[in-house]
Design a protein around this nucleic acid. Structure first.
Length: 334
DNA sequence: TAATTATGACGAC
DNA sequence: TCGTCCTAATTAC
């Protein structure tokens, strides 16, 4: 899934293309038919992301809560106004471009073939994103231009404005909430650097971590401790801090705990801006370009089991911890 | 064509 | 700790 940065990017896309507009909603797959019927015809009024969850608000205090889980995704199609705070418009928001190796492009791949963007001063950039043709299509040349675009696969929820489509598939959570329920959901979450004051966030995070016997590796993945970190950022943050993942939270030096939070603040901002999980930003420029050029070469430790540590050459190890893969360098991270 | 994999989280024991 | 849920792409056979 999309770790926190992608969810913030998706929320910004909704802010730019759906908030303030009437929305038609449907559940092509049928599994959210009731909810879609309730949303249908309402105007989107606001959107926010907290950690890995997005809250899209409609008229009359109706909120759609979406959590993409491990492989959920939003597909945008049609005319898309690009949020100026993110790097580019993308057809696919949320799910990675899975290539089976190292997955640095968590964000969405823009369909270059269908893109037709223009930029003018002071005006929003408009990008036309064509829907991929389904494999069953007959090959008619204009299939990609029909509106609304044909449904492909298991679409739990389709949201449509006059000109923009957003298809949701594979979410772990997709439900309607009242304001109280939204508040309760958010109250359970740890600080998110893009929602909470970063100084307060640092205090909350540090206080909680320094009280727990749980390993720091597990604590970073615990959304009630800190919001938005997933398996990739967890591994990379710990490496960057040269911190052993198995150390109990309360035994991690306070300065290291604070460093982890500040580094998350930094990486999240970069991730939201670029749409990529850039965790080697501190590399020298030449080496950095080389690393980014290769799909398999973009992280310090994530997905690098058996490969030599970039710093010391020791083999990166992978362990199964709480059903998730934990990658780390046993030499650098003592 | 089937098995495997994935950036997640929950509930039951 | 285990099973469960959600989907699609890639890899193995």
């Amino acid at each position: 899934m999309p770790e926190g940065h992608s969810v913030h990017r998706i929320a910004r896309q909704f802010g730019r293309n759906f908030v303030g507009r009437a929305v038609a909603a449907s559940s092509p797959q049928g599994r959210f038919a009731e909810g879609a019927a309730v949303i249908d015809g309402r105007t989107a009024t606001a959107v926010r992301a907290v950690g890995k969850q997005m809250f899209l608000e409609f008229d009359d205090d109706l909120t759609l809560r979406v959590h993409l889980g491990l492989y959920g995704a939003w597909d945008f199609a049609g005319e898309i106004l690009v949020d100026p705070t993110i790097a580019s418009a993308n057809g696919r928001m949320g799910q990675t471009n899975q290539r089976g190796t190292d997955l640095a492009d968590d964000d969405p791949i823009l369909d270059d073939a269908g893109e037709n963007s223009l930029t003018s001063i002071g005006a929003p950039r408009r990008t036309r994103v064509h829907v991929r043709m389904s494999e069953q299509t007959t090959g008619l040349a204009d299939d990609g231009d029909v509106w609304p675009p044909p449904v492909v696969g298991q679409v739990r929820l389709r949201l449509l404005t006059e000109s923009t489509a957003a298809d949701l598939r594979g979410p772990t959570a997709c439900e309607l909430q009242t304001p109280d329920e939204v508040a309760a959901t958010i109250a359970k979450l740890g600080p998110d650097p893009l929602v909470d004051d970063v100084t307060e966030g640092e205090e909350r995070f540090t206080t909680v971590v320094r009280r727990k016997p749980t390993s720091i590796g597990l604590l970073l993945m615990d959304q009630s401790v800190v919001s938005g970190i997933g398996n990739v950022y967890r591994a990379e943050l710990l490496f960057r801090a040269r911190q052993n993942p198995h150390t109990p939270g309360r035994d991690v030096p306070e300065e290291t705990v604070r460093e982890l939070w500040r580094d998350w603040v930094r990486l999240l901002a970069i991730g939201v801006e670029t749409g990529q999980m850039m965790t080697m930003d501190d590399l020298e420029p030449a080496a950095y370009r080389r690393a980014m050029a290769s799909r398999d070469d973009r992280h310090w430790v994530y997905h690098r089991a058996g490969l030599p540590c970039r710093i010391c050459g020791t083999e990166i190890v992978v362990e199964e911890v709480a059903t998730r893969k934990l990658y780390w360098c046993p030499n650098c991270q003592r």
